[in-house]
Amino acid sequence: MEKSLTPETSDRLKAIQATIDTHYTREQAAAMNPLALAYIGDGIFSDLIRKYLLGCGHQNVNVMTKTSICYVRASAQAQIVRTLLPELSETEERMVKRGRNTASQVPKNANPSDYRYATGFETLIGYLFLCGEVKRMNSLICQSIDVINKNSEI
Rank of each mutant, 00 (worst) to 15 (best):
C142F: 14
M1R: 05
G55V: 00
L35F: 09
Q105S: 12
Y71E: 05
E90P: 01
C142Y: 14
R98N: 10
P34L: 07
L54F: 05
K3H: 07
D11N: 10
T67A: 12
F129C: 10
A118Q: 04
P107E: 13
M1W: 00
I40M: 14
P112C: 01
L48V: 01
I20R: 09
M32K: 11
S10M: 15
R82P: 00
K135E: 14
S46N: 06
M64T: 02
Q105N: 13
I44R: 08
M95K: 08
L130K: 14
N151D: 12
S75G: 01
Y52S: 03
G120R: 02
Y127K: 07
E92M: 09
T67W: 02
R98Q: 15
G132F: 08
T119E: 05
L13N: 11
V61F: 05
L48N: 05
G55F: 00
V81L: 06
S113Y: 08
D146E: 15
E90K: 13
R26A: 08
L54S: 05
R26I: 00
L140S: 05
K135S: 13
F121D: 04
D21L: 02
I40Q: 13
G55T: 01
L128T: 12
S10W: 15
R100I: 04
N111F: 08
P107S: 10
V61P: 00
T19W: 12
Y39I: 00
R136A: 13
A18K: 06
C70Q: 14
G126M: 04
N109Q: 13
T102H: 13
T65V: 10
D42G: 11
I141C: 09
N60I: 07
S144R: 11
R12E: 13
N111G: 06
F129Q: 12
G120L: 06
T19E: 11
T91E: 15
T65F: 07
M95Y: 00
S68N: 05
R98P: 01
T6Q: 11
D11L: 12
G57I: 04
R50T: 09
K3L: 11
G126P: 05
K108A: 14
A30T: 03
V61A: 10
T6Y: 15
T83W: 02
S144L: 08
Q105L: 12
N101H: 14
Y115F: 15
Q17N: 05
E87T: 07
I80H: 07
T119C: 10
R26S: 08
K150N: 12
Y115L: 01
R94P: 00
P107N: 08
K14H: 06
A15G: 09
R50K: 09
D114N: 15
V106I: 15
R26W: 05
V81D: 01
A38N: 05
L53H: 03
D114Q: 03
Y52N: 06
F129M: 07
R73W: 09
C70G: 10
A38P: 00
H23F: 03
A78I: 01
I49W: 02
E27N: 06
L48W: 03
R82C: 02
T102C: 14
M1V: 02
E92R: 10
C142K: 15
T102Q: 15
